[in-house]
Design a protein around this nucleic acid. Structure first.
Length: 562
RNA sequence: UGGGGGAUCGUCUAGUGGUAGGACUGCGGACUUUGGAUCCGCAUACCCAGGUUCGAAUCCUGGUCCCCCAGCCA
């Protein structure tokens, strides 16, 4: 058992709390702010929070941390719900909003003022910054810090009533301006914002900050384990301070873990927003993006993403997971479940000189050798075919087991053919057609079917082929660490100019005619592909989810390097 | 220079005083009508220095390096 799964120190804490009786049932929460789309980094948190609850008979809440109306919207909130569901998790009727607690939050704030533990400050934002001190120097008290309880209560009520302009006053916790932890230097609890909130409308013009709203919301919901990322470690004393100084029903435990970093991509909301905004990618669901929408369109399965999240574990040290690991999990999943199909991406015409004109045979093709239950299909074979340009070399390098002048190769599920002639364009010298002969005895199932040839290639009958567009994707960034930028340059210098390659005029076997958007296939010898939503009747567009491992590519590269 | 965290193969991750294990990647081989899949093998790690101990990745001491924090963002 040990060593089979990656470490998860939070799981150990949860299990220990259950064992000791500290909690009878755990309650976690996934608390996104509806101001952006979810990415695979969020998936780690979702799998952690929902997964832990599921494993231990607890529950997990979905809670929108919507305390900043200027950046939030229903569109985001709805997209987030769709993504969480797609990932495979269900919050049942436990969907909450920090904005749903605005009234209680207000009352608790009044409680704090009454206890002399919060006050209305009338310094400007700039002055507050100056009074805060620095990392090495203590801050100093605001001149308003000792305002009477009555005055603060009155001012706070008038803030709520809308008597003041944005920024005129702020409610602050009265803690310690000399604390070495700057988060404890009288943090802001409420600010005035005359902005409509996507859920509460114009009901409020003061909004609580994260630091204040989050612990209280957790406590109201009876969260047992409040999981967040490392950068909030410094905020934990503040989280605890609010819960200790206000009459909330419970005191959740905040535990911090390292956020996910993935190689060759970016994960920050700011950068994702920039890439979309500047048109470096085509929208939030661009298949090159690590967004859940992007990964879904790319053809990733929720199962693969969940397996990945389980494998990487949960810990406090920050690192960077290689994209290759994610790719491993999607290959593993798709290998089991994708029907195989033949598709020629860069077609080269082949004419079988000794195959009767007008004759068509139907050959049997296995849908998935990993799963015989997926059955077989018929694929038409005829005199004129397309093969992959890459599967022919006029001057074959060593270990090239495909087609070359005078050489034989097997056509998958069909015959062994031999290249007897090469037709070139007179002007450019480009190979435009291959003249071949076929060996009629070697058809799969035929008398000479067992004859050994070095290689097997895929093909499509020219007259039966379906035209398609195929989009090949590569890493969005050329450097593993997209943030590793030369002095004075922008991170966009690391963008991979070849992250998207569009192929048109690709030739597909006819069984793909009725394919539905979202359906996944393995194109034999090439990779896993998924029918894109840009497809229409009679217009096929495929995304390459991930290429098959390609050992020939490695041999060839080694030959070139050596 | 204040405070809070963290250091195990290239990457992710086990180990909690007793042979440093797994996964990914890489390399080699077997098999193969997908150069896929599968199987087998190889390589590579305890941040450093002292100490305690029969024995230290683990305990102690002292260093080093990395990350986060000075929003009325979350």
């Amino acid at each position: 058992m040990k060593g089979m799964t990656a470490g998860n120190f939070i799981r150990e804490i949860v299990e220990s709390d259950l064992r000791s009786g500290k909690h009878r049932r755990i309650v976690t929460r996934f608390p996104p702010e509806p101001n952006g789309y979810l990415h695979i980094g969020h998936a780690k948190s979702i799998c952690l929070n929902f997964g832990l609850a599921l494993e231990h008979g607890g529950v997990c809440h979905l809670r929108f941390d919507d305390t900043n109306p200027s950046t939030e919207s229903v569109e985001y909130a709805e997209a987030i719900q769709a993504d969480v569901r797609w990932l495979g998790f269900d919050w049942g009727d436990r969907m909450f909003y920090a904005s749903g607690y605005f009234e209680q939050l207000y009352e608790y704030a009044v409680e704090l003022i009454t206890k002399g533990k919060a006050y209305v400050d009338s310094l400007s934002a700039e002055e507050i910054r100056q009074y805060r001190g620095t990392l090495t120097e203590p801050g100093k008290n605001s001149p308003y810090r000792n305002r009477s309880v009555e005055e603060s209560r009155d001012l706070f009520a008038r803030m709520r009533a809308g008597e003041f302009k944005d920024g005129a006053h702020v409610l602050r916790a009265k803690i310690d301006m000399a604390s070495p932890n700057v988060n404890m230097r009288d943090p802001t609890m409420y600010r005035i914002r005359h902005v409509a909130h996507y859920r509460t409308g114009d009901q409020w013009c003061i909004y609580p900050t994260y630091d204040y709203a989050h612990p209280i919301s957790d406590a109201i919901e009876g969260i047992t384990h409040s999981l967040c990322t490392l950068e909030f470690e410094d905020h934990r004393p503040l989280y605890d301070w609010f819960l200790d100084n206000v009459s909330v029903p419970s005191h959740p435990q905040q535990i911090e873990f390292a956020r996910l970093n993935l190689s060759h991509t970016v994960m920050s909301k700011r950068r994702l927003l920039e890439l979309v905004g500047k048109g470096n990618v085509n929208g939030w669901d661009d298949p090159r993006l690590p967004t859940l929408k992007g990964l879904r369109r790319r053809g990733y399965t929720p199962e693969a993403i969940r397996a990945f999240c389980e494998h990487i574990g949960v810990q406090k040290r920050d690192g960077m997971v290689e994209m290759a690991l994610l790719e491993h999990f999607i290959r593993e999943d798709l290998n089991k479940l994708s029907p195989r199909v033949m598709a020629v991406l860069r077609p080269l015409r082949v004419v079988l000189e000794n195959y009767p004109e007008g004759r068509v045979e139907e050959v049997d093709a296995v849908n998935n050798p990993e799963d015989p239950g997926m059955g077989k299909r018929k694929v038409p074979f005829s005199r004129v075919l397309y093969i992959e340009r890459d599967d022919f070399r006029e001057a074959p390098p060593k270990k090239f087991f495909r087609l070359a002048p005078g050489q034989e190769v097997r056509l998958r599920y069909a015959y062994i053919i031999k290249c007897v002639g090469v037709v070139k364009d007179d002007r450019t010298g480009e190979v435009v057609e291959l003249r071949c002969t076929y060996d009629p005895e070697t058809r799969t199932g035929g008398p000479q079917a067992g004859r050994k040839v070095k290689g097997t290639i895929h093909w499509v009958s020219a007259s039966h082929a379906l035209d398609a567009e195929v989009r090949l994707y590569d890493h969005l960034f050329v450097k593993a660490d997209a943030g590793d930028i030369p002095e004075g340059q922008d991170y966009t210098v690391n963008l991979n100019p070849n992250s998207l390659e569009r192929l048109t005029g690709c030739k597909m076997e006819p069984s793909l005619a009725g394919a539905q958007p979202g359906s996944r296939y393995q194109f034999e010898r090439q990779g896993y592909f998924c029918l894109d939503s840009d497809s229409a009747l009679g217009k096929l567009v495929f995304n390459r989810t991930v290429a098959l491992r390609d050992s020939w590519a490695k041999i060839e590269k080694a030959q070139q390097d050596g």
